[in-house]
Each structure stands twice: as C-alpha cells, then as structure tokens.
C-alpha cells in the first residue's frame, strides 16, 4: 500500500541541524496494524507525519498505491489526507470552538458533502463510538476518553484506508486507553490499516508488526506470526 524509499528528514534549528530520519525504507501493506516504537527524538512522530503527508521528506520516494506522491501538489495531497487518511493525536486536537458534532463534520465539509447529509453522517459516526449523548458538547465539556473518541470519529469521517495514531492513549488513564485501543483493533479487523506510534511496550505488542526506531533509523522491524 505504502512504500517509503530512502526517506530522509532534517530539521534546521538554526544553530544545529537535527536528522530526524535517515535513509528510512519502509513498506506497509493493506490491513496491517503497525506499531512504531522508540525513545523520544528517535523520529517516530516525524515518520508518522511523513506517512500522513502532513510533512514532506527532504529526500526519498513515497509511493501510495503505486503513485509517486512527490509529484503531487498541495490540493491533491490535501485531498488524499482528507479522503484516505485519518489522524488521531495524543492531545486529541479537537477544535475547541466547535461542538463534538461539528468537529466530526469538518472533514466531511472539506470533502464537499452537503449540510444535512453531513450532519447525518457525523451523528452516525459519533454513535458508533458511543457518544450519542455528547454530540452538542464542546471539547472542554468532555472527558479525555470522550474527546479521543470524538477524534477517532472525525478520523473515520471519510472512510479512510489508513489511520495514523500518534500515542492515542498517552494522555488517558489505562482503562480509557484500553477502550481506544479496542476501537482501533476493531477497525483493523474491518480492514483499515493502522499505524500507531507508542512508548508503551505492552501496546507495542498489540499490533501485527512492530517497527523500532533509534536516531532516525529503523532498528528493528518485527512481524508477529499470524
């Protein structure tokens, strides 16, 4: 599904340059549940952002379903993010000025879906994560677990093929984290590819494949026997 070849990313911090990723080759198949682990600063988030084309690599080739993404413009890339990818973040990253329902409606709005249809779809998504009763609530009125579930509903809005989760349980108490993980696993069972960055060794073992990064390089890449 996704192939990264010799991907490199350097951050220029003025006084020093930081090599976030060095010569990363990675291939992700449809339906995988990949966990990305590694110490702080090992380039996990950078890798995730590059996979989600929120960020672009300085060098290397990114191929999505056989298409070289480096040739595409911002509009096309945004469209891919909107329709094929879904992001889930550690700090939820909801729009605080908008209700849970409206947050979920945003990606639908960017996709050009019409108002009433959009509302129905968003309600359906929120129900599927068990938030029927919280649709009109603003993020600051919701618990962390609820906020993350809104974020997942938002990530799922346009039926993405890939979910990119950056420590989705990092800010949650363990039982709430477990709920989130359960949702992700069930999505994976339905065929959605998942890439999840985590610190947690136990969580790292929950996926079908674990990629370990150190200093911007892939240290290990282990697949569980099915």
């Amino acid at each position: 599904m996704i192939t990264l070849e010799r991907i490199a990313k350097t951050y220029d911090l003025g006084s020093a340059t930081v090599e976030a990723l060095v010569q990363v080759d990675l291939s992700i198949e449809r339906g995988e549940f990949v966990t990305v682990m590694g110490p702080s600063g090992s380039g996990k988030s950078t890798l995730l952002h590059i996979l989600g084309i929120l960020d672009t690599a300085d060098a290397g080739i990114y191929t999505l379903e056989g298409h070289d993404l480096t040739t595409l413009g911002d509009r096309e890339l945004s469209r891919i993010r909107n329709e094929h990818f879904g992001f889930v973040f550690q700090s939820f990253n909801l729009f605080n000025e908008f209700s849970a329902l409206e947050n979920v409606m945003f990606p639908l709005m960017y996709a050009g879906m019409r108002g009433p249809e959009r509302r129905d779809r968003a309600e359906e998504l929120l129900s599927s994560v068990g938030l029927d009763h919280r649709m009109g609530h603003y993020p600051n009125m919701l618990s962390g677990g609820e906020q993350q579930r809104v974020a997942i509903a938002r990530a799922l809005a346009n039926d993405p093929t890939l979910i990119l989760a950056d420590e989705p349980t990092g800010n949650l108490p363990s039982e709430k984290g477990e709920e989130i993980l359960t949702i992700l696993e069930s999505l994976n069972r339905d065929g959605v590819t998942i890439v999840m960055v985590t610190h947690d060794d136990e969580l790292g073992q929950r996926g079908s494949r674990c990629v370990r990064l150190r200093d911007g390089r892939i240290e290990s890449d282990t697949r569980k026997a099915a």
């Binding site: 911002d74 945004s78 909107n82 990253n93 729009f95």
Partner: peptide, 16 residues
Amino acid sequence: TKDVGISRAIGASKGS
C-alpha cells in the same frame, strides 16, 4: 496556529 495544523491534517488545503 494549531487549529490550522489540525485542519490541514483532516484535509484542508493551503488555499482553503
């Protein structure tokens, strides 16, 4: 700034 980052992540283009 952060909202802009979020919008971009969920599919807003620069033009948008």
